[in-house]
Design a protein around this nucleic acid. Structure first.
Lengths: 153, 153
DNA sequence: CCAGTTATTTGACAACCTGAAATATTGAGA
DNA sequence: TCTCAATATTTCAGGTTGTCAAATAACTGG
């Protein structure tokens, strides 16, 4: 509410918006491609990626994915049926089930990251200084429009 | 094939990749939100947006969306049943059907764009010079990883 | 123990997406 | 003209993603 930077529609701004749209589109294309190479859907790849770091309760997984917990059940089911993920019991709370990547799951997740050319190395031709500049600009972009989404994690 | 900028995994690069991921996530969230405000799904909003400019054959629509034509049939069906889109015959080729936004469809598409806060004005706090810098960096990013995708449209 | 809350799952249903098959039209050539 | 391959669209079957409501199980506070 403090201040609101009136919406601008000059050519420059429109072009940047367009470019961001292209980045988003490309990111998604390559993500789906990379997932498909491992016979996974985008959603499955996302979950596997989240679990590759450490196990998570179904609830938390749903929060990260911004969807209903009942939806996560199915995705984890499919990953589990392929042996990429397993459900463990939380010793502290017998209500919760921890979804955890198996060894095989971590292996696939690792291969997945390798295939994420764009997500991993979108910055091919930029120098270190340019990367720093880009980082700062992106930070400010996310901060400024942001209500805290980006800061999570 | 000239040169290939070896994959880098320094902290700076990883952070930029992370930030781009956040941008992508935010873009999608807000896109879905904006669509939902008009009782549309993301896919429907995308199609409506494409058709707001000018009619397109189903085939072209599928190409733009990078999906099978048979999929577009359903999406256009649903938009048509709401009176946002109509199918016209192409006088030049009676095989093709042109999907075209109705007046109401264009009205909704326009409202949709207004609701796309992030997509429209992700740059709230950046000065003109910073926008120029961002534009140049994004251009080079897309160019360098790119095989031509970004140049289209 | 009881009531209320929380975590997960199940079931019904809609949307999205693919792939194969059906239909209609076009266009090139015998 | 007739025929045949190619193209545009749709239909159908089947799988994945997503929502919502209801059921089950376990925790928490009186």
């Amino acid at each position: 509410m403090a201040r609101a930077s009136q919406p601008r529609s000059d050519e420059l701004t429109l072009e940047v918006v367009e470019l961001i749209g292209s980045v988003v589109a490309r990111y998604h294309e390559e993500y789906e491609e990379a997932a498909a190479e491992h016979a996974l859907t985008g959603a499955q790849a996302g979950v596997l990626n989240l679990l590759a770091r450490h196990p998570l309760p179904m609830r938390k997984l749903a929060e990260k994915l911004k969807c209903e917990p009942s939806n996560v059940t199915g995705i984890v089911d499919r990953l589990e049926s392929r042996g990429l993920v397993e459900r463990r019991l939380d010793p502290n709370d017998r209500r919760v089930k921890l979804a955890a990547a198996t060894d095989e799951g971590r292996r696939v997740a690792s291969g997945l990251r390798g295939a994420l050319r764009f997500a991993r190395e979108p910055l091919a031709g930029l120098s270190d200084e340019e990367r720093r500049t880009l980082r700062d600009l992106l930070r400010r972009m996310l901060d400024d429009t942001g209500d805290g989404h980006a800061a999570a994690g």
